[in-house]
Nucleic acid binder design. Structure first.
Length: 671
DNA sequence: ACGGCTCAAACC
DNA sequence: TGGTTTGAG
């Protein structure tokens, strides 16, 4: 069967860059004395030495493998250095690795479209850069080829016996009679070698890379020669490469699908797939998967490199295995508070650094019932609009949990007649998704708010009725207990100050303005916890800190920016009736438009020209009293990015009463 | 009833 | 749509 030939116009140069045992490298950069030693990163040392999550290549030589316990690793390799991942709030804290990953991304994103595939992997589309190089300074014209380039592995490269390896590589790269595809790959090789050197120089991290005509092949190649090497898959090498490649080695075939191919179709290698017609594969695995399988058997993968440098969601979770399973509401709440704190902190960072806002909060849990037959029933996930602020996230997360728990336990959940049927929670996680950019045209708005915030008034007793909007499924049947939170307004002279701005029409729904020092979490010693009454569903835990996150604070002290407004604007809860009324008019456009705007991201703004995010909010959805207070210039600016979007699809549906995040910042006017 | 913690995407 | 499942590192 022939391998499909890509049209010359379609030829792309794709690279997959994979950091070598990344967490280990991060720790070795922090502790240089560990360099060169067999090292592993381990989390939670308590039980059997903790679990390994990254293993250095020195340690791998001694037979240490990921998925070993710390103790086993010690046994296999007595001299191994075990480094623990940082712990914060009683759970693993991966922020160190996240930011290290960002360092790498920011370097790799320079030469073309870049997709952050995971914390330590990126895809690059180097087509344009390679074409430019081919036009301006083709490899064959170069008199000097970098050493790193010459160390590249070129699949299928014939090697003359007498020739040195590097000489063969040089010859291949500089061939004048190569076809265009190979020449473009040669340019890719040079570019990637240069990028990897730059990553090493600027971050001290080594990485490996694959260079090919599509993502699938590039990914395959990056793992073939590790660490600190790069591998190229010329078009001519594809067929042979795939013919003997075990299906389970392919990107999406490592799981059940790959197993099914083996057991149901007798397919052991990707090459074996060539025997099956497209329709045959579609019969077995559906239209999409079938076609996809047919294509990958031929080395075809049209998947584009997404221009996305930032994650699409943030999550914070923890497992409570075996005897540690949670069995009381109060411990669940404690852990949800911890997880919510971390999540909130990361949302704040995302807001500050990337000017993005998340709009959905989701709670996941895993559970079992000790007494019951259907003890393996899935614990349902629940989501609701995300409101910024630690205590709000904590409160909403807990309410989501309780809603899910009732559903999980059924109608007789905690009735007295029930004979001790009880639940255990073995895992909890909270996550934030539907992250969108703050519109770019807010600069004058920001200046306005900065100039306005001269003397914020402090609220004496902001007692706010605070409802949590629940998803329809959560509210139906077992109605969710609406929480009533006494808004904690605390004044501290030296550290953070919480201000409240009046919302003129609704004086009981004020806007919190918290100076930046307030937002960041702090070492536990500085935390003041106001006791929480669990049973009455009141959550008033408030965290204080005096730590700063950046030097902007000095200048902006007491001068909240629009960022602070977004961060701390108290959601004005919509009553059910209000929500429904509102939804008939505007919720449709709001929702539909939100999903479309979620496609925009930082990278698109950098690579293509920046497109104004259209929030799709009508002016009259903004509290009129707030709006009227703004100068005409600001009003115009607001109109420009809040203007209703006509191109959206209105065919669908009525609103379902849920609200998106922006509605919390600019709640509908109650007339 | 341990591999822990994240993420993305397809699916219905 | 939200919620589930799958798969990945």
């Amino acid at each position: 069967m022939p391998v499909a030939r890509p049209e010359t116009s379609d030829v792309r140069v794709i690279a997959h860059v994979d950091m070598d045992c990344f967490y280990v490298q991060v720790e070795q950069r922090k502790q240089p004395e560990l360099r060169g030693l067999p090292t592993a990163v381990v989390q939670y040392n308590e039980w059997q030495g903790g679990g390994l999550i990254a293993v250095s290549y020195e340690a791998r030589k001694c037979g240490v493998k990921r998925s070993m316990r710390g103790d086993e690793a010690k046994a296999a390799c007595p001299e191994i250095q075990l480094v623990q991942v940082p712990v914060a709030r009683g759970k693993a804290d991966l922020n160190l690795y996240r930011s290290a990953g960002s360092e790498v991304v920011s370097i790799l994103a320079q030469s073309g479209k870049c997709e952050r595939a995971s914390i330590d992997e990126v895809y690059l589309d180097l087509t344009d850069a390679a074409e430019s190089m081919l036009a301006d300074a083709p490899p064959e014209s170069l008199e000097l080829i970098d050493e790193e380039v010459l160390k590249s592995h070129i699949l299928g490269m014939s090697r003359k016996d007498g020739d040195d390896f590097k000489e063969s590589v040089r010859d291949w790269i500089c061939r004048k009679d190569a076809d265009r595809r190979d020449k473009l790959l040669s340019c890719g090789i040079i570019i990637v070698a240069e990028l990897r050197k730059q990553v090493l120089k600027e971050t001290e991290f080594t990485c490996s890379a694959g260079i090919a005509h599509n993502k699938m092949l590039a990914k395959l190649a990056s793992g073939m020669n590790k660490p600190a090497q790069q591998t190229v898959v010329p078009y001519s090498a594809v067929q042979e490469l795939l013919s003997s490649l075990p299906v389970k080695k392919m990107k999406q075939l490592g799981g059940k699908l790959g197993t099914s191919l083996q057991t149901d179709l007798g397919v052991d290698t990707v090459g074996d797939l060539l025997q099956f017609s497209e329709t045959k594969l579609q019969e077995h695995y559906g239209i999409n998967t079938g076609t996809w399988l047919w294509n990958i058997a031929r080395g075809i993968s049209g998947e584009e490199v997404q221009g996305r440098l930032l994650p699409k969601s943030h999550g914070s979770g923890k497992t409570f295995p075996g005897p540690r399973a949670l069995k009381s509401l109060s411990t669940v709440q404690h852990w949800l508070n911890q997880l919510s704190e971390e999540l909130s902190e990361r949302l704040s960072s995302d807001l500050e650094l990337n000017k993005r806002i998340a709009s959905t909060l989701t709670l996941h849990a895993s559970a079992f019932k000790s007494r019951d037959s259907d003890s393996h029933k899935k614990f349902p996930s629940k989501s609701c609009p995300l409101r910024y602020g630690v205590t709000k996230i904590q409160e909403d997360a807990f309410n989501l949990f309780q809603a899910a728990l009732r559903e999980y336990m059924g109608p007789f959940g905690s009735k007295p007649g029930n004979k001790q049927e009880t639940w255990r929670i073995t895992g909890l996680s909270v996550s934030a998704s539907k992250i969108v950019d703050i519109p770019s045209g807010t600069s004058s708005i920001m200046r306005y708010f900065q100039s306005q915030s001269t003397a914020p008034s402090r609220s004496a007793d902001g007692c706010v009725q605070d409802h949590v909007e629940m998803t329809p499924s959560a509210t139906e049947g077992c109605s969710v207990q609406r929480s009533t939170e006494a808004q904690a307004i605390i004044h501290e002279e030296d550290t953070g100050v919480t201000y409240t701005l009046p919302n003129f029409e609704n004086p009981d729904k004020d806007i919190d303005l918290v100076s930046k020092e307030d937002v960041v979490s702090c070492p536990s010693s500085e935390v003041t916890v106001i006791p929480t009454q669990l049973e009455s569903n009141r959550s008033t835990q408030t965290k204080r800190t005096g730590r700063k996150i950046n030097n902007q604070n000095e200048k902006n002290r007491g001068m909240p920016s629009i960022v602070d407004i977004f961060k701390n604007y108290n959601a004005t809860p919509l009553s059910k009736q209000e929500t429904q009324e509102d939804s008939t008019v505007s919720s449709t456009s709001r929702r539909a438009n939100f999903s479309s705007s979620s496609h925009s991201n930082k990278v698109n703004q950098e690579v293509e020209e920046r497109r104004e995010t259209d929030w799709g909010y009508k002016i009259d959805e903004i509290d009129q009293s707030v709006f009227d207070e703004l100068p005409a210039e600001i009003q115009r600016e607001l109109r420009s990015f809040l203007h209703p979007n006509k191109r959206l699809n209105t065919s669908k549906s009525k609103g379902d009463g849920s609200t998106s995040s922006i509605a919390h910042y600019f709640p509908p006017l109650n007339r």
